[in-house]
């Protein structure tokens, strides 16, 4: 019960999200009645399917980013080399500088249309926040703790797993949170190259000048982002 209360805001977001997905028609009539509904197109895909696709993409992209970022972060941390650290950070910064839309477009000739380019672009973009925060977390551990661990006779691996990573966990989760929230919003761009997710409906709404479609798909995206933000923030404690 206490858990429920602690997570009350995220549960609220989740509830809103689910209500929106499943009961949009009701919402359309009772809350959004003031917007002209001129949708001539019959929706080929339901909001639910789009929701599932979108969440799948976000989770997959974030997972890839997490794996790559953590591997890189650990290799930098274990090497203890400032040069190597600077190099990896430099490369990752490039990943964040490259515009997501450009990466998606550039990957199409290689990967074809669909979810591939989107996943690639999102994964690349997500590496830097996670990497940077993980490294910060690991390096902000007071030296005395590390020394004490060494003194106790722990090996480097044991130290890493039992002490350093748990202590750096809040930072790692912050990085994951940042990457995931960005992914949720950015994933909408993928619709321009045939990826799934809410972006499909948004782009559709743009092309047919249908504000209702845009709202229909944008609200769940925002709710989803807020939900991830909430959940990952609370679990960082």
């Amino acid at each position: 019960m206490k858990q429920l209360i602690k997570h009350r805001v995220s549960i609220l977001y989740a509830l809103f999200f689910l209500v929106w997905i499943f009961q949009f028609d009701w919402i359309k009539e009772n809350i959004l009645f003031f917007i002209d509904d001129q949708s001539r197109l019959v929706q080929r895909i339901s909001l639910l399917e789009l929701a599932v696709q979108h969440i799948q993409i976000v989770v997959l992209a974030s997972s890839i980013s997490i794996v790559i970022a953590l591997v890189l972060a650990l290799s930098v941390h274990l090497s203890q080399s400032k040069e190597y650290r600077d190099l990896i950070l430099q490369f990752s910064t490039i990943g964040e500088t490259l515009p997501t839309a450009a990466i998606i477009a550039l990957s199409v000739p290689i990967m074809g249309y669909g979810n591939g380019p989107l996943l690639l672009a999102l994964s690349i973009y997500g590496i830097l926040p996670i990497l940077r925060n993980t490294l910060e977390g690991l390096s902000s551990i007071p030296r005395s703790i590390n020394e004490a661990a060494l003194g106790l006779g722990l090996t480097a691996m044991e130290r890493l797993i039992k002490i350093e990573l748990p202590l750096a966990l809040p930072n790692i989760l912050t990085g994951i949170r940042i990457a995931t929230i960005i992914n949720v919003s950015a994933a909408t761009i993928g619709a321009t190259v045939g990826a799934g997710g809410f972006g499909v409906m948004i782009v559709s709404g743009i092309r047919t000048y249908e504000p209702l479609l845009v709202i229909q798909a944008s609200v769940p995206v925002i709710l989803l982002a807020l939900w991830f933000d909430r959940v990952l923030r609370v679990s960082a404690h």
């Binding site: 929230i181 919003s185 000048y209 504000p211 995206v221 925002i222 933000d229």
Partner: peptide
């Protein structure tokens, strides 16, 4: 930052 750029663009159009 939380709202997708596309949505913002679209919603401003109207």
């Amino acid at each position: 930052q939380v709202a997708p750029t596309l949505s913002m663009l679209a919603l401003l159009m109207i």
